[in-house]
Design a protein around this nucleic acid. Structure first.
Lengths: 227, 227
DNA sequence: GCACATACTCAACACTTGTAGACTCAATGA
DNA sequence: TCATTGAGTCTACAAGTGTTGAGTATGTGC
């Protein structure tokens, strides 16, 4: 028999075509995120994704056009740095880690997928670079006081990347098996050392970080950064 | 014509067979390091390596048996942490970075190759994990004073990995375009914050790190670590 | 009930991959 | 000088890749 329309997606009988289409697309995307996350871009095959989604490989192409396009749709990197910025600057280090880990502990797949692919796939590298600069280093550079704000914010981003890789990809036991709270408590001061070098409470005015609307958009680093 | 023995290797006429064989092998290895470093394990083809070495793909197989074996021969990771350990503990953070960057600035290929492959190739991941634990976190854990020495040393390793990736792979401008010395000066205190949390000069006895021979081999982390 | 639109599958394509075996010819040693 | 060795090349294969176009059966509107 050919053209069996019933795919894995359909379990509840009364679905419209559009609904069915949407569910299939979502199933492919979910499968893609998992497989890309496990195998990286080059190690992932359309067939593997299709198989996991319970669908024909050709259907994947029909939905997304190409492996490349599917990857772009599936991958996203969201570290939640924006959410952590508002608040006292003296706690920013720990707050960054807290937000980041909270987000990753539950669903690291999309981020891990991107990180796993970034080293061997240009487009993924570009996405990570953009995410690091636009969503990470750049807003931070606006907050950090004093010289070398750009470099320091870049270093904070590098520490975050290193942590994610060590904990979620390489799974070095000493880092992977520690509760998130403990990690936040231990590592936060190191980030803080870059944000307020002289120590908490010594930043000029011990000020709170300005709300997003106050800060200028498109910061210094951004302008030099990814195309 | 078939069987042209003259490969790229031969420029100086009077070479013995053994010498020629050795040079060819070295050329393949060099090419492999470059290509693995550029493309990662999965993205690298035997043909690409052979082409770069100016040699037939079959010859690569003849020398190394398989792509896998070639990778193992080509890849190595050496962060030079051992070299940085002796000396005052108050400077250890900066000294670690100084040694690391000095080594990487000149010839990052082998290390980059391994890092680029680690996320998509199990054997590479294992090698990085082993290198981080045995050559990085483990010796450090013996030096760090106080609680959580293992976690802290793991975090130091994660910071180093993050730095390498940000500077040499992702090439985030703010981090990649700064002179090594400046980076050492800016980032060193952050590592130091994990090694002597209360600040330089406040470690118990402000002691020097013991020489390698003094320290016990096969540390705590190591025992739980990678197989 | 029927013609149409479409979500989906099948089979095959052109290509690339790692790898094996037959072959060639320069270096070697008597 | 000449048979032998072995370093290196050529050709081919089987498996796996992304991708395509034709075909099928189901949902949709009349």
């Amino acid at each position: 028999m050919r053209g069996v329309t019933r795919s894995v997606i359909s379990d509840t009988p009364p679905i419209g075509r559009a609904e069915r289409r949407a569910r299939t697309r979502a199933a492919i995307l979910t499968a893609a995120r998992t497989v890309f996350g496990d195998c990286g871009y080059q190690g992932t095959t359309i067939r593997a994704i299709a198989s996991r989604a319970g669908v024909d490989p050709a259907l994947v192409m029909q939905h997304f056009g190409s492996k490349e396009a599917l990857f772009v749709s599936a991958a996203e990197i969201e570290l939640g740095i924006d959410d952590a910025l508002p608040g006292p600057i003296d706690d920013l280090g720990e707050r960054l880690l807290g937000t980041l880990l909270e987000r990753l502990e539950s669903a690291p797949e999309a981020t891990v997928s991107m990180l796993r692919s970034m080293l061997t796939h240009d487009q993924a590298a570009e996405a990570v670079r953009a995410a690091m600069i636009d969503k990470g280093a750049s807003p931070l550079a606006d907050i950090i006081i004093g010289d070398d704000a750009e470099v320091k914010s870049g270093l904070v981003a590098s520490m975050i990347i290193g942590l994610i890789i060590t904990r979620y990809l390489l799974k070095i036991p000493a880092v992977a098996e520690v509760p998130a709270e403990r990690l936040t408590h231990l590592f936060g001061p190191c980030l803080q050392k870059l944000i307020t070098p002289a120590g908490p409470g010594t930043a000029p005015g011990n000020h709170e970080t300005r709300p997003e609307s106050d800060r200028q958009q498109g910061s210094r680093i951004n302008e030099r950064g990814a195309r």
